[in-house]
């Protein structure tokens, strides 16, 4: 049987279906991996309760681990350790920015809507930006406009 570390490395191959540069591990939705009696037990939690990509992610985990010769996999979806945007790793945040999606500001700072008003543009790193909509193309993104680049961009929402 593989070690926990080995399973985590394999899970790095499974990407968020809506953000193909971000692995589920860097997204922070894998909350535990245990290996008990030749079985891999994975605990995961969705970013948003209504996230439609959850079943797809579970299927991808099964397929990826099967490719590595692991057949006995149980995935438990739970809210015991609920997801929040601070769980995205630094590596994950860098990947988001490179993808053109502004990483979320720390949720500690998100006390008023104003925090979202001047998101940092992932292209020019400037903050001469405006919030256009707290709701975007997926549940986890908001829409912004950069006055310097004169282009719209999206931000991963703090939650």
């Amino acid at each position: 049987m593989p070690t926990r570390e080995q399973v985590y490395t394999w899970l790095e191959e499974v990407k968020d279906p809506e953000i193909p540069v971000l692995s589920l591990v860097d997204l922070g939705v894998i909350t535990d991996v245990q290996i008990i009696n030749n079985e891999v037990l994975i605990e995961m939690t969705p970013t948003f309760v209504g996230c439609p990509a959850l079943d797809f992610m579970k299927q991808e985990i099964h397929e990826t681990l099967n490719r590595h010769g692991i057949d006995r996999v149980t995935i438990d979806v739970t809210f015991r350790k609920a997801w929040n945007s601070d769980l995205i790793t630094e590596k994950g945040k860098a990947a988001l920015k490179k993808f053109g999606l502004a990483p979320p500001p720390s949720r500690e700072l998100f006390t008023e809507l104003d925090v979202l008003e001047h998101a940092t543009c992932p292209r020019c790193n400037g903050t001469n930006t405006e919030l256009r909509n707290t709701f975007g193309p997926t549940l986890c993104r908001s829409i912004h406009y950069c006055n310097t680049c004169r282009e719209a961009f999206e931000q991963f929402k703090p939650l």
Binding site: F135, G136, L139
Partner: peptide, 18 residues
């Protein structure tokens, strides 16, 4: 923007009910 907002809130709420 409002079209997207109400549609997103719909997705949240139906997901939460589920």
């Amino acid at each position: 923007e409002e079209d997207i907002a109400f549609s997103s809130m719909a997705q949240d709420k139906v997901g939460q009910s589920h």
